Simulated scan of single mutants.
Amino acid sequence: MKRPLVIAVATVGVLATAAFVLPELPPNAATDAVKAQLFKEKEKSFSSAADAPRDSGRSFALPAWVPQDATHVKVKIRTNGEGRLIRFTLGSAGFRMPPCDGRTQPVGAPALRARWWPSDARHDARPVCGDAVQYQVVVRGKRVYAWTNGEASPEAGKAATAVPSPGPAAP
């Protein structure tokens, strides 16, 4: 009778430890597989936006408003489609964000967390539409952070008109 109880307690201990430790481990094949199964999250890096998929049907596809010459691109997704974090460094083309002409959805803090994501990004965010989902975007120097929790864009299906971003354009 003691043996099943010991096994059950040990299993609960291992799972509880994994829940706290796994999200903080650097990405690798083993932790990525466990995170995908346990937390329903995946993360991928691209050296440039040109290397990332643009087809909206693909998992790590970038929105059309991400400049093609952006570098150091990181994308973290919730595999059920309800969240996405994107970080990139601006290239020489600068950055223009499609505005939200319609009524935007109220958006909370990002549903996902990542070591590379600033905890205070929500305070400087501006809504960006023109994609199927509404993003919140923060421009800090040459670094751009964007997230969505899956809120539908009021501009979905419309052609977006680019306007200058609030941050400085790259030289």
Rank of each mutant, 00 (worst) to 15 (best):
P166K: 10
C100R: 04
K2Y: 10
G94Q: 01
T89D: 15
A146V: 04
L38V: 15
A18N: 05
A19K: 03
A33S: 12
P166N: 05
F88P: 01
T89N: 14
A16D: 05
A33T: 14
V128Q: 08
A52G: 00
G94P: 04
I77Y: 00
A36W: 11
E82H: 14
D51I: 06
V12I: 15
P23D: 08
A170F: 11
R58V: 07
E82R: 14
V107F: 01
K2V: 12
P168N: 13
V144Q: 06
L90Q: 15
D101W: 02
V14Y: 02
A121Y: 06
Y145H: 10
V12D: 02
V138Y: 12
F60G: 06
W116Q: 10
T79F: 00
G94V: 02
A114D: 09
K2F: 14
V73W: 10
P98A: 12
D131Q: 10
R143M: 15
P63R: 01
L5I: 13
K40H: 10
K35F: 08
A30M: 08
P110R: 08
V9K: 06
V75R: 04
L38Q: 11
R96M: 13
A16F: 07
K35G: 06
S59I: 09
P110C: 06
A121L: 06
L5C: 08
P168R: 15
A159T: 03
E155T: 00
P23M: 06
A111S: 15
G81R: 04
I86R: 07
I77L: 01
R122Y: 12
G13P: 05
P166D: 09
G141W: 08
D131A: 05
A132K: 13
V73I: 07
K2P: 12
P23F: 04
D120M: 05
P98V: 07
A61Q: 08
V21A: 12
S153W: 03
R103C: 00
P164N: 15
V14W: 03
A19P: 01
V144H: 09
P118H: 04
V34N: 03
F88G: 01
Q37M: 12
A52R: 00
V128W: 12
A156W: 00
P99N: 01
Q136V: 00
P171D: 08
